[in-house]
């Protein structure tokens, strides 16, 4: 499989960028001087060994954590001091490493909850629940796009791990995000699901930017246009997969040998 070419040929524009990102936890620096540019219509992978600070970078970019230093710009606006829910409303939406669904709601309701706010059906406490049926069409479309149509009335807690991840992707897409941050979207998935999710991501990235943390390197190789390697909170290498995978420092980091480059 070759890397998908973006729909438009113009130079990809930067939609999300971070400069000098740093986060200290007490005396420990989890993320140090990270510069990152995420482009429209590109899949960008963030890889690195466990504890490299990938998820912390996600938390910083989505403002679930406040950076100690540095600035973050989303679609030309400085979001360094913006609240996480506001960031989500601006179009930067994330998924979580531990699958984040609403466990006691059905698949349909999970997707409808995500659709409620963008469709202005969230604050009406005087309307009956049937008002939400107006969202069924869009919800069905999303559910079908991730292949969950058979489980539409299943309670999310009863789904298999892989199906939960797929549901989470559907709820994330419901917000029509401009930038999508996926934290290990394929972790714990069966082989078939991995292929399907890769296909969904490829499709999604035609019109939006995707930044993903992923351990499955073959997925990274086939799916991602750009790879950033993190180690101990710092950027170790950057470039397309071929360049990065040839880098001796990256090889050392991944092989876990003790020699220092």
């Amino acid at each position: 499989m070759a890397v998908a070419t973006p729909l438009v040929n113009e130079a990809p524009r930067v939609v999300l960028s971070a400069r000098g990102l740093r986060r200290d936890f007490g005396g420990f620096t989890a993320v140090k001087d990270v510069d990152l540019d995420v482009h429209h219509a590109r899949v960008h992978a963030l890889i690195g060994p466990n504890g490299a600070g990938k998820t912390t970078v996600f938390n910083l970019l989505t403002k679930f954590l406040q950076p100690t230093h540095g600035t973050i710009t989303l679609l030309g606006e400085d979001i360094t001091k913006t609240a996480p829910d506001k960031v989500a409303r601006m179009g930067l939406v994330r998924s979580f490493q531990i699958s984040a669904v609403f466990p006691h709601l059905t698949v349909l309701d999970n997707v409808r909850v995500a659709l409620q706010r963008p469709n202005r059906l969230a604050t009406q406490f005087w309307k009956p629940l049937s008002a939400l049926d107006a969202l069924n069409g869009k919800a069905e479309e999303l559910i079908r796009s991730v292949g969950l149509e058979k489980e539409v009335n299943a309670v999310a807690a009863d789904l298999s791990y892989g199906r939960k991840r797929v549901l989470e992707i559907a709820t994330t897409l419901a917000l029509e995000p401009k930038v999508l941050l996926l934290d290990e979207p394929m972790a714990g998935m069966g082989h078939e699901d991995v292929g399907m999710v890769a296909e969904i991501i490829r499709e999604v990235a035609r019109e939006r930017a995707v930044l993903m943390v992923e351990h499955n390197l073959s997925v990274v190789a086939t799916l991602c246009h750009h790879v950033t390697v993190l180690q101990r909170g710092e950027i170790l290498a950057e470039g397309d997969y071929a360049t990065v995978s040839e880098d001796p420092r990256v090889r050392t980091a991944y092989m876990g040998t003790e020699e220092t480059s």
Binding site: F64, L105, D109, V113, A114, R117, A122, T123, A131, T171
Partner: peptide
């Protein structure tokens, strides 16, 4: 009515998974 309304549905989702509700853009 409050429980069985669009608003009640959002409340339920906050009870179920507050972080996810935030990441869906709800000002919890």
């Amino acid at each position: 009515r409050i429980i069985n309304s669009p608003f009640g549905m959002v409340l339920k989702s906050i009870r179920e998974n507050e972080t996810r509700a935030v990441s869906l853009g709800y000002s919890v």
